[in-house]
Amino acid sequence: MQLLDLPSRRSEAWKWSDLRAAMAGQENVLIGSGELGSEGPIAALAQVMGDAYGPSALEITAPGETFESRITEGDAGQYGTVVVKAGATATLVERLGVSGSRLRPFLPGYSRIEVEPGATLVRVVVQANDVAVGEADAAIVLNEAVVKLGKGATFRQFVLGEGSRLTRIETSVEAGEGAQIEMNGVYLASAKRHVDLTSRVAHAAPGVNTRQLIRGVARKGGRGVFQGKFLVERAGQKTDAAMAHNALLLEEGAEIFAKPELEIYADDVACAHGNTAGQLDEDAVFYLRQRGIPDVDARAMITRAFLIEAVPDWVGDELKAEIEARIDAWLGTPA
C-alpha cells in the first residue's frame, strides 16, 4: 500500500476526513504492507499494525462478561474477531488513547463482531487523550467495527471521541430479524482536533428497531464529523429507525460537518432523521443567569446537559461516571 492508495477528500466516504493528507509524512508505517483489500483502508492498516500482536479472536459464551482492550502505546493495531454466542450477554470496552511515548502515534483497529441470535453485546469505545493537546494532535486513530446481528440480537454501542489529528470511529452493522440497536455517541472537538463518527446500519430483515443519538461540540480550530446512514433493504419491512445528530459550535472557527443519510427500499417502515448544528439556546442561558449563575457556568451547564443526554444508563455506573468526568474535564466545569 502507498499513500496514494489511501482515501482523500475526493472519496465520498472520506470527504471530510482526508486520511491521505493526514498520513502525509508518515508513509513509513505503510512499508511492507500488502494491497488495499476489499475490507477498506482501516482494515488494511490494522492488519499491518496488528501483526505485532497477532490477530485476536474472542469467543464469548458465558453471560454477563466484560472484556476490556486498551490500545495506548506507540503504533499499535488490532485486527480481530469477536463472537458473542447465542443467548450470551457481554460488554466490550475499548479504550483508544495516547500515552505520549511517541510523537506521532498511529492506532488503527479493526474488528469483526458477530452477535448470535438472542445474544446481547454492549460495546463502549472511549477514545481519549491523557496527554497535552500538542502531542495528542499528531495521533491518527482509526477504528472500525463490522457488526453482524443475528435474529433478535441486541447491540448497544456508545462512543466517546475526543479526537486527534484525525480520529475516525466507524461502525457498520448488519441487522437480522427483530434486532434491537442503540448507537449513541458524544464527540468533543477542541483546537486542532478532528473527530469523525461514521456509521452505517443495514436493516436487512424485518422488524429491526434502531435508535441513534449523537451529540457533539466543537471549539475554534476543531472539526466534528458525523456521517450516519440507515439502509433499509427490501426485506427490511417494519423497520423502525430514528437517527438524531445535534451539534453545538461553541466558538467561532469551529466546524461541524454532517451527513445523515437514509436509503430505503421497503415501504412499510418508519424512518426519520433529524440534524441540528448551531449554538446554545440563549434563552436558556439567560434563564440560568437570571437565577444568578454566571454566564460561563450557565453555558457549561447547558452544554453538559446537552451532551450527557446522549450517554445512556446501560453503559453502567462506573463507565458513565468516567465518561461524564471526561466531558466535565473537557468543558472545564467543576465536577
Binding site: 461553541l250 460537518f257 437514509l262 432523521h273 433529524g274
Partner: peptide
Amino acid sequence: HTVPYVENRRGDAQLEHEA
C-alpha cells in the same frame, strides 16, 4: 433516499434538518 450534507463553520448559525 435522503442524502443531506451539512457543513457548518459558524457558531452563530442555526441549521435544522428534518426528514
